[in-house]
């Protein structure tokens, strides 16, 4: 007869968090940025058919990094939630906040249930408002917490490094071409500081465009339109007065490189995660 080893809850949760984080870090990163007319989603995705970004409802978009089958499941759940809400009440009653709450509940339950393996996904739910001040971006890490983000957010493998790069350079009221260029620049930086070229056909780009006349604001940017935007003479796409890049490598030197910044607020945090949370303070 065997007695199971005692594992403290702290340790169990830390292990699960570590597992999920590693799974997410294996995937490619993606970024979500606010620009003057809405919100743009940019990611590297070699597949034309398996999307990382998707429409949830009129003004709400969804982005996910991690395991495809797991986030696809969550995405379809989100579409159902939104459509059912909109049909029972009104189209205006479907909000990103409500959807983010549902996702947080689902992810949180799965994360803390011992019977299931935690989902290796990190989600972004974004809603475009009538004006830039009405835009909402929520980041949902694997453990079911919600982080309210402004301006720019990155999830996936290199998220920490990319988001600090973006935080320094992103400003309000960028044009779509500028925001897109900045996003591609951020994505092409590797963990070791090198840069590599991401060709347009490997990029997946979508926007929530508040100026679109249709009720449904989500639109994929593909083919000619994408190359045109990338080639657009975006003078000032990268503000040169941004702080120097020398602070960057610090992210790469920590053992948990590629760990998305975690928010506090979940009791199930290992000590490693608490150290991370200091990085995130200036953002909130």
């Amino acid at each position: 007869m065997s007695t199971p080893f005692y594992v403290s809850p702290q340790q169990a949760m830390a292990d699960r968090a570590e597992y999920a984080r590693k799974g997410i870090a294996r995937g490619r990163s993606l970024v979500v940025l606010q620009y003057a007319d809405g919100i743009v989603f940019v990611g590297e995705n070699p597949s034309r058919a398996l999307h990382k970004f998707s429409e949830i409802y009129d003004r709400i978009g969804f982005a996910a990094a991690g395991k495809y089958n797991e986030y696809e499941n969550l995405r379809i759940g989100g579409v159902r939630y939104a459509d059912l809400r909109g049909y029972t009440y009104d189209r205006d009653d479907v909000t990103a906040r409500g959807l983010a709450n549902v996702y947080a509940q689902t992810l949180g339950t799965i994360f803390s249930s011992a019977a299931e393996k935690p989902y290796e996904v990190e989600l972004v739910v974004a809603e475009v408002g009538a004006g830039p001040e009405g835009d909402q971006i929520y980041r949902l890490p694997h453990d079911g917490s919600i982080v309210d983000e402004h301006g720019s957010v990155a999830v996936g493998g290199n998220a920490e490094q990319i988001s600090s790069f973006l935080d320094q350079r992103h400003r309000d009221g960028m044009s779509l071409a500028e925001a897109l260029k900045l996003a591609v620049q951020a994505l092409s930086r590797e963990a070791n500081g090198n840069e590599r070229e991401i060709p347009a056909e490997r990029l997946e780009v979508a926007v929530l465009d508040r100026t679109r006349p249709q009720q449904r604001k989500f639109k994929r940017i593909v083919g000619r339109q994408l190359t045109r935007l990338l080639d657009a003479d975006g003078a000032g796409a990268t503000p040169t007065d941004a702080p120097s890049d020398t602070e960057e490598p610090e992210g790469g030197s920590t053992p948990a490189a590629g760990t998305p910044p975690k928010d506090t607020g979940t009791p199930a945090k290992g000590t490693g995660a608490q150290a991370d949370s200091t990085d995130e303070d200036p953002k909130e």
Binding site: A49, S54, D83
Partner: peptide, 16 residues
């Protein structure tokens, strides 16, 4: 009609 619109939109979003 409302339900029909919803269904077409739902299919489009889920199936892509």
């Amino acid at each position: 009609v409302k339900l029909f619109q919803l269904e077409l939109e739902h299919f489009e979003k889920v199936e892509g």
